[in-house]
Write a protein that binds this DNA or RNA. Structure first.
Lengths: 217, 217
DNA sequence: GTTTGTCTAGGTAGGACTACCTAGAAAAAA
DNA sequence: TTTTTTCTAGGTAGTCCTACCTAGACAAAC
């Protein structure tokens, strides 16, 4: 990276902003080129001044940080985004990644993490606060351990598992039957057994389950 | 972290292993406590010696690195996993995260990244090779730009968009109708129009689409 | 050797979604 | 204001899935 990394910080809380300012300004690698307190000003600054990194709070008056990220992506703007948030909600993290965000830092860890995050993202990398990634892992483990407590995937027989995979491939019972050289009625019998074992009820619940758990099959 | 981080490296290619060995052994923070060349030996070592970190190749004779990770998770084993891979395939990364993997390092970047990865993961963090995360972002951008080329979500009207969101919430047409105080037949008419605009055909294709694109709605 | 589990497959019923069609009322655009 | 789009809603038909049921063949476990 030639020269110092140009950084913009955006947060509607002046006190938090000044804390961030001190931490970033004290690091020789970074050059704090601007601040903003709301979404519109932030977007304007980014489009005009093109800083290397924009550190955005999620909860911003006007545009949220995620909305700014989404507007920017595809616009071949060189500025990479780091999102600051209070909440470690899985859905928000997914949305952030979908919006082309380069980093995701929890406010409670901001002081310790933000410098590493800026450095990593400036070099084209990706940064998640350790507690965020820990949360992601925990969430996934929880999903698996729930599956272990529950009737669960483990109770499925070979044939059931094979069919469940094909369901996750969006195949109908008829298509699955043709592929396995068995009767569609047999496939439906397996479906029924799978649904019973997994305690799935209601319309197309098995298809939904298969799509959501495709990776664990 | 008390003392040095105990590290196990597992790869079936002796040459690559020795390269890795030199890099890790040269760092004072880490203590290389073992090596293995196949999956079974690796799993045995992990269960018995409980290193802090296991660096696993994906392509291993016997068990793959991902399979080891999956077997370990939930077993309250303290060892955290870093996966080494040649391929930056999205599906594999997702599976790795689902398996509770702490780090994901591309072999082409291994020499530069592995030390950072071990340090981050040993402290409870999460590490993705910059080029992997770059790939993830690129993949997501590609998905969005494809959506822009295609007939796309943009052509949907307000009512259609509202209904599509509710479909993604796994609600049936009847439930959606009750929620919006309209006839189920109206909801079905909207479904039909949405499917036409998105060029979706076949059984439950709209439900599938809604579930897969929930985050972009 | 009998029991248990699994795979197979059919009957019947009903709910939910797709695929076509028409058509009036309301809102938005020209 | 006229035209177009959108929202509303119904008809009919067919497919797919769920929810119950029974039942024979076969292999593994007891």
């Amino acid at each position: 990276m030639a020269g110092r990394t140009k950084v913009l910080i955006v947060d509607d809380h002046p006190l938090f902003r000044s804390g961030l300012r001190q931490v970033i300004a004290a690091d020789a690698r970074f050059d704090l080129v601007g601040e903003a307190g709301d979404g519109e000003a932030a977007l304007k600054f980014i489009l005009e001044k093109k800083p290397d990194i924009a550190v955005l709070d999620v909860n911003l008056p006007g545009l949220t940080g995620l909305e700014i990220a989404r507007k920017l992506q595809g616009k071949k703007n060189p500025t990479r985004i780091i999102i600051l948030t209070m909440h470690k909600e899985e859905e928000m993290i997914n949305r952030a990644l979908d919006s082309g965000v380069g980093g995701f830092v929890l406010k409670e860890n901001a002081v310790e993490d933000i410098l590493d995050a800026i450095a990593a993202v400036a070099e084209g990398g990706h940064y998640l606060s350790p507690s965020v990634s820990g949360f992601l892992v925990r969430r996934r483990n929880r999903a698996e351990s729930l599956a272990a407590e529950k009737p669960g995937l483990d109770n499925l027989t070979k044939a059931e598992r094979r069919i469940l995979k094909l369901i996750a491939d969006k195949k109908t019972s008829k298509e699955i039957a043709a592929e396995l050289f068995i009767s569609p009625r047999t496939v439906e019998a397996h479906r029924a057994n799978i649904s019973t074992k997994l305690e799935l009820h209601g319309s197309h619940s098995l298809l939904q389950f298969a799509l959501e758990n495709r990776s664990s099959l």
